[in-house]
Amino acid sequence: MSEINDTDFTVDSYTEYNNVEEYKLPETVTYILLVLHTISSGISLSGNVTIIIQNAMTKRIKSPVNYYLTSMAFSGILLVVFCVPFTVMMNLVNYTWIFGRFVCSTLSYAQTASVIQCSFTLMASSVNRHLAICRPFRPKQSARTVNGIILGIWIASFAIPAPIAYFSTIVAYNDTKFCVEVWPTNTYRQSYSSVIMILTYGIPLLVLMVTYGHITVILSKRPPGEECEEMVARRCSARNKNIKVFLLAFGAYCVCWLPIHVITIVGDVNPSIYDLKSVHVLWLFAHWMAMSNSAVTAMITIFLKSMFSSCLSKVFRKRTESDVSHTRAELSARRMTHETIL
Rank of each mutant, 00 (worst) to 15 (best):
I4N: 02
N5A: 03
D6C: 06
T7K: 15
V11S: 14
V20C: 06
V20W: 04
E21S: 10
E22Q: 13
K24I: 09
P26E: 06
E27C: 02
V29Q: 05
L34M: 12
L36V: 11
H37F: 15
T38M: 14
A56F: 14
T58L: 11
V65W: 04
T70I: 01
M72F: 05
L79V: 12
L79D: 11
V80E: 12
V80D: 10
V81K: 07
V84N: 03
P85D: 13
F86S: 10
T87M: 14
N91T: 14
I98F: 06
I98H: 13
F99L: 00
F102E: 11
T106V: 12
T106A: 11
Y109E: 00
A110F: 14
Q111G: 13
A113K: 11
S114A: 15
V115R: 08
Q117G: 15
S119E: 10
T121K: 01
A124N: 03
S125R: 08
A132C: 03
A132R: 01
R144H: 13
V146G: 05
N147I: 01
I153G: 04
W154Y: 15
I155Q: 04
P163F: 02
Y166Q: 01
Y173R: 09
F178R: 03
E181V: 05
V182E: 12
W183F: 14
Y192A: 05
S193L: 14
S194N: 07
M197C: 14
I198R: 09
L199E: 06
T200S: 12
I203R: 13
L205V: 12
T211K: 10
P224V: 07
G225C: 09
E229T: 15
A233H: 08
S237T: 11
K244W: 07
L248A: 08
G251Q: 01
C254R: 02
L258V: 05
H261L: 04
T264K: 08
G267R: 03
L276K: 04
M291C: 10
N293K: 10
S294P: 09
T297C: 12
F303S: 14
L312N: 13
V315E: 10
D323Q: 14
T327Q: 04
T327V: 12
L331Q: 09
R335K: 15
M336C: 02
H338G: 10
I341H: 12
